[in-house]
Design a protein around this nucleic acid. Structure first.
Length: 124
RNA sequence: UGACCGAGUGGCGCGAUCGCGUGGCAUGUUGCCGAAAGGUAUUGCCAUGAGGAAAGUCCGGGCUUCACAGGGCGGGAUAACGGAUAACGUCCGCCGGAGGCGACUCCCGGGAAAGUGCAACAGAGAUAUACCGCCUGCCUUUGGCAGGUAAGGGUGGAAAGGCGAGGUAAGAGCUCACCGAUCCCUAUGGUAACACAGGGAUCCUGUAAACCCUAUCCGAAGCAACACCGUAUGCGGAAUCGGCUUUGCCGAGUGCCUGCCCGGCAUUCUUCCGCGGGUGGCAGAGGUUUUUACUUCGAGGGCUGCGGUAACGUAGCUCACAGACAGAUGAUCGCGGUUUCGCUUAUGCGAUCCACAGAACCCGGCUUACAAGCUCGGUCAAAAA
RNA sequence: CUACCCGUGGCACAGCUGGAUAGCGCGUGAGACUCCGACUCUCAAGGUCGCAGGUUCGAAUCCUGUCGGGUAGG
C-alpha cells in the first residue's frame, strides 16, 4: 500500500480551512473528503479508494535533517496504523508537526496518530 | 611527566523482518490523466542508493546560449619574488616586517618625490607658523615698537632626522664627523625578491582598507541556462512606416550584440516576441554497434614506482560510483564496539552516550559546524639517571 | 541561482555617506502635583553598537572574514 502525496498547494489550504481537525502534543491533523477520489479509484487497477497524505513541516521544526526524519517517522507511523487498524479511504489527510515532534520517537508518533484518527472517526 | 606547537586520520559495525527512490528483467492492464506531445498504474526477482563538510555561496573553471566581428569609455578583481595548476583571490617555497624563551605563528606587503582631499580637541603654529624665550636696532626705559631666530619651554599621534663640534649678535644641515632612513651605482652570494660591503645623492608629517596613479587579468548571463517535441483554446506586448532615380537605395522605427558610445547584424509583414505543457539537459565525454557489449580519452577514486625541498608532475595496475521534483536511506529487534557513571579484588553486571549535518548540472579551492578515539613530527620546563 | 538590505538600552528607530558627544520616543525606577489615582513635570538607571581580526593618532561608522534575520526577480 503506497502513500500518495498531495502535490498542489491549494489542496493544503483547502484542507486546513475546511477540513476536520484533531490536535495532539506532537502535531495537528486535518482531514477532508477528496473530490478526486473517484478518478483516483478508476486509475488504480484494484479499483480501490485511496487516501492522499500531505506533510507540512515548517522550518520551526528544525534543520533539513530533522525535517526529513520527522517526515519519515510520520509516514512509517501512518503505514503501521493503516496496517493494524485500517483507515477509511477517499480522504485528504494533512499532518503539520509541531516543534516537539523533533525529539519524539516512532512509538509516540504512532500512538498519537491512532488517537487523532480515531477521534475523527477515520478508523474502521 | 607536564605544558605547548605543527600535520594528518576518523566520521560506529554486522545480521534479521517490514518499508522507500532509481535502473533492469519478467508479469500484467488496454485501463486512467491530457487538446497533443507525452505521462502513469499491479506483483515478483536482481542491482544500486548522501558528505567530509553534501552547508555558506566567498573565488576559479568546465558546460550552454547570446552574431562565441571589432574599437573606445566606464566597471570589477589582484598587488614583494620564484614556482605549481585547466584556472584562481588557491597551494608550495622563499624574502621583508611583527610576535614568542622556543617549536612556530601572523601580515590587502606596489606608489605619498604626478596631482587633489582630509587631520577634531589641544597648541603660537598641522605643511606652514613666532606664544613664552634668545639676539640686534630704535625710543619718551617697571616697558614699548621693528627685525632676526627654530637651539630651549609647553601642546599633540605627528613640530622639519638624532647627537656632537665648528660657526654666529642669537641661531639654523649653514658646514663637518658619526649614526639612522629612502633611492641609485659597483663587487660578492642568490633564478629572483633580497642580503652584505663600499661609494654617491636626498632627508620632503601621516593617510591610498580617501579619490587617485602604476602593473596584470576579466565579454555577458546562468541548468528556472539551453535544445527538441507539441502548441487545442487562450492571455499579454511590439509594429502595421516615409522619401526617391523602384528586383534596389536612403531615412526612421523595433529587437539584438553591451552597462554606455562608435560601429554592426536582423527585420518592417499579417508577422514577431513573451507566458502557460512535455521530454531531454541528468549522472563524465567520444567512437563502433539494433541492443547487450567493447574500446579510447580525461581536470575522477585507490595502490605502487620514479622526478622534485614542496605544491605537484609522470609511468604502470586497478575500480566505474545516487540521481529526485511535496523531494528517496527509515522503523523494530538481536549481537558487538566506543565514552562516562555505579557495584565489584579482577573477570563481570547494570545504566548512559555516539557529533555536525541531507546531493539537486559537474569539478578545483576557501570559509564555517563537528562527539569521542587514533597516528606522526617537534619545542620548552622539571625530575631522575 | 542571481541581486540586495538589516543587526545600536527591555521594544521600535536615528547617528554611518563626509571618522572624534552614542541620541530620540515608548517602557522601567524614584520624586513632585493630588484626599487617592490618571495626565503632566523633574531626575535617574539601563549600551561588549551581532561576532572576530585589521587600517588609523582615533572605528557604531572604513576594509576583510564570519554568524543570524529578511527582501526582490526568474
Amino acid at each position: 500500500m503506497k502513500l500518495y502525496p498531495i502535490t498542489e498547494n491549494h489542496l493544503y489550504i483547502k484542507t486546513f480551512t475546511k477540513g476536520k481537525r484533531a490536535g495532539t502534543r506532537l502535531f495537528s491533523l486535518c482531514v477532508l473528503k477528496d473530490y478526486k477520489a473517484e478518478r483516483l479509484r478508476r486509475a488504480n487497477p484494484q479499483k480501490e479508494f485511496l487516501n492522499r497524505v500531505g506533510l507540512s513541516v515548517g522550518k520551526k521544526v528544525g534543520n533539513a535533517v530533522t525535517r526529513n526524519r520527522v517526515k519519515r517517522i510520520l509516514r512509517e507511523g501512518y503505514r503501521q496504523v493503516d496496517k493494524e487498524y485500517g483507515v477509511r479511504r477517499g480522504y485528504l489527510i494533512v499532518i503539520a508537526p509541531r516543534e516537539a515532534c523533533a525529539t519524539a520517537t516512532s512509538e509516540d508518533v504512532k500512538r498519537d496518530l491512532r488517537y487523532a484518527l480515531g477521534k475523527l472517526g477515520m478508523l474502521k
